[in-house]
Simulated assay, not measured.
Amino acid sequence: MLPCFVMLDLETTGGSAVRDRITEIAAVRVENGVEVDRWSTLVNPGVSIPSFIQSLTGITDAMVEDAPTFAQVAPRLLELLDGAVFVAHNVGFDHGFVVNELARLEKPLKVERLCTVRLSRKLYPQHKGHGLDAIMQRHGLRTLARHRAMGDVEVVLQWLQLAQAELGTEAVQREAAALLQGGTSVPPQLETPVEDIPDTPGVYLFYGEGRTPLYVGKSVNMRTRVLAHFQSAAKVAREARIAQEIRRIEWHDTAGELGALLLQTRLVKELKPLHNRKSSKKAQVDLVQQTLQGWPHAGRIGIREHHARTGRTDVHVFDQWCHVATVHSAEDLDDVRHSRQALAFDLETYRVLAKRLAALTGRDSTVFPLENAHG
């Protein structure tokens, strides 16, 4: 598949690379298609193993009581990984745990990564499931040690051999090399193809298994910003948690940055995403009292944003520092001009608008008064 790689699998006390710990490591090093080394060990995590994890893996507190700590086995692991590509089924999970364990020892890990979940998607796009159980069922693979580290490593190695026999060694090597060249920072469990996310302004929402978003973000280039989240996962604890939990991404286009800021502000307030930072209410009140300015216009104003490549135009209507509406047509703008809905002040909207009006040059958007705003 690759000139030199280590197929690795971990068992852990839970799903958080930041909070949980490793209980078992298995690794097989392959050079030029030949297995040259294999190693596995239980690891004393230093914490108790939850009962449901013990039931899943069969690894109990008693089994790891006399096992070496990660600090004791780290030199052997680093020796195996030296000069090799780190390969795993859902590599973000295993790599995240190894990176965090080594960080506790103040040891950096600089290694290329390849995810066999993503490789399976490339090689077998006609199939929906690419988790290990789905692959085993699809290809008729068997193991007596599922959810044990070496058992899972051996299953993935069997699958690679089968894929090369079915599709040809060159095809597997070509797709593996393409994935390696393209980077492996995208969480393998992500159901939404990142290439589908537009490289235009807008708001993106990260979802896990539940209906409440994990995070709501905005950018003038949504695809680039989403990838930046994943690339930061090895270093930033919040990004690591999001990368582990994320399953799908939704997005909403806007014509420019102002529209993205306004929409993000509204969605964060309405949806209460789990990982967006929350500001102190006292700090909000203090800031309003200290900095709130009078409305500098005679009535309602519109700020027009236009995106040349997509052709989208948004007009954002404001009155008394409040966002009244965003419209996309002359008819809708006329309706808003004559509307009388109550204004709702929001501090984040005030901040966004005050900053935009102070910096407005007319190059990216145009501000104009709306006649008959107050009758």
Rank of each mutant, 00 (worst) to 15 (best):
P213E: 08
P213R: 03
P213A: 09
L214P: 03
Y215H: 09
G217Q: 01
G217N: 02
G217R: 00
G217D: 01
G217E: 00
K218G: 00
K218V: 02
S219N: 08
S219Y: 05
S219I: 05
V220W: 05
V220H: 09
V220S: 14
N221M: 05
N221F: 05
N221E: 10
M222D: 07
R223K: 14
T224L: 12
T224R: 15
R225L: 06
R225Q: 15
R225A: 09
R225T: 07
V226L: 12
V226P: 04
V226M: 08
V226E: 06
L227S: 05
L227G: 02
L227D: 03
A228E: 15
H229I: 09
F230V: 10
F230G: 07
F230C: 09
F230R: 07
F230K: 08
F230A: 09
F230H: 09
Q231D: 13
Q231C: 10
Q231P: 01
Q231H: 12
Q231N: 13
S232V: 01
S232E: 14
S232M: 13
A233T: 10
A233K: 10
A233R: 15
A233M: 12
A234Q: 12
A234S: 14
A234H: 12
A234M: 13
A234P: 00
K235Y: 10
K235E: 13
K235A: 13
V236L: 10
V236T: 09
A237R: 11
R238G: 01
R238F: 05
E239S: 11
E239V: 02
A240P: 00
I242R: 00
I242H: 02
A243R: 02
A243G: 06
A243D: 09
A243M: 07
Q244P: 00
Q244W: 02
Q244S: 13
Q244M: 14
E245P: 00
I246D: 03
I246Q: 04
R247Y: 09
R248C: 07
R248A: 11
I249Y: 04
I249H: 02
I249V: 15
E250M: 07
E250H: 12
H252G: 00
H252A: 09
H252F: 15
D253Q: 12
D253F: 08
D253K: 10
T254Y: 03
T254K: 10
T254M: 09
T254L: 03
T254H: 04
A255Y: 05
A255T: 06
G256C: 07
E257P: 00
E257V: 04
L258N: 01
L258R: 01
G259T: 03
A260Q: 02
A260R: 01
